[in-house]
Design a protein around this nucleic acid. Sequence first.
DNA 1: TAACCGTGGAG
DNA 2: TCTCCAAGGTT
Length: 361
Amino acid sequence: MLRGENSIGPDEAARVEAAREALLGWYAASARALPWRARGTTAWATWVSEVMLQQTRVETVLPYFARFMERFPTPRHMAEASEAEVLGQWAGIGYYRRARFLHAGAKAVCERHGGEVPRGVEALRALDGVGEYTAGAIASIAFGERAALVDGNVERVLTRVFAIEGDPKSSAVKKHLWALAAGFADHPDAGAVNQSLMELGATVCAPTAPRCLTCPVRSMCRAAQEGEPERYPEKAPRKAPRDEDWTALLGLYQGRALLVQSALGRWEGMLVPVMVPGAVDPASLAGRAGAHAVMDHGVVVHVLTHARMRLRVFSATLDEAPTEGTLVSMDALAGLAVPKVTLRVLSAVRSSGDAAPRRRR
DNA sequence: TAACCGTGGAG
DNA sequence: TCTCCAAGGTT
């Protein structure tokens, strides 16, 4: 049979069914107890957890999730909060656009859906920051809909179990994976099915050194039979982050530091020191900012996914109270929308009071 | 399609 | 120290 756009062959369908049953049994016995899986979890909590978990480890998410649900127990609580506060609560886990999307999504839900998270992949998909994966996750986990999902875990599990060659990012392989996932999700408890696939990928079918000996679907896994499970999924070589030179000038005024809202896509809306690309003369930078007494605090390196930022850090005393930006006390940053790079710069300024850049051996 | 968006933990 | 990469989404 020709494999259509969203269908799988009879052989694969049979294997999907067998794997699903094995996974469900395993999941019922072995699932980690995570807060967003607790009884009484709302669709909103599922949404928040799914967004936080995008490209972010469970252990990292745990404290943030707890804080968010405490502060924003419903979409309305978040919709009524300022973006600055939402970003402040998000500060530290990165990919800050997620927080702005979540805030926008909460507002949209209040305006369009009476404050209730909508059902159905299509309505969910219409929310900012909710893509195919997240829509499928909310629909299946929160509402029990037979919605498929494919994340990095599912991709790994399925490419191994079905020995799927090719770049998993290619549209052909993606279609195949989503078709298989749809087969898995065609079940009365699609939420558990989907979570079992992800849980297996997270705890057993690991990227390296998969624990095949304890795997519930080992007997039906092609990659395990071939003896080289790590061969799947094929991974494209990563590009090295480019090097970027920046000059940061931290304005100081009466013991506090001047931060401004970043206009970069990176950290958009977050509070950062004045930063300009390139190696800029700090004296002229200070002059423009109305500051004097420039001090050199050496170089801070901040590595991101696509760039390695090398920041030459200076501080200077502001002549007058700034009219723009926010003056922050260096030890009262909790709840402020401050990314790690800001903390690094503040730390560099605080720890090197002298003008000479300090070098570690 | 490919580039872009943060951070920290594991090996 | 360094590489990999984690429950992705948008442009």
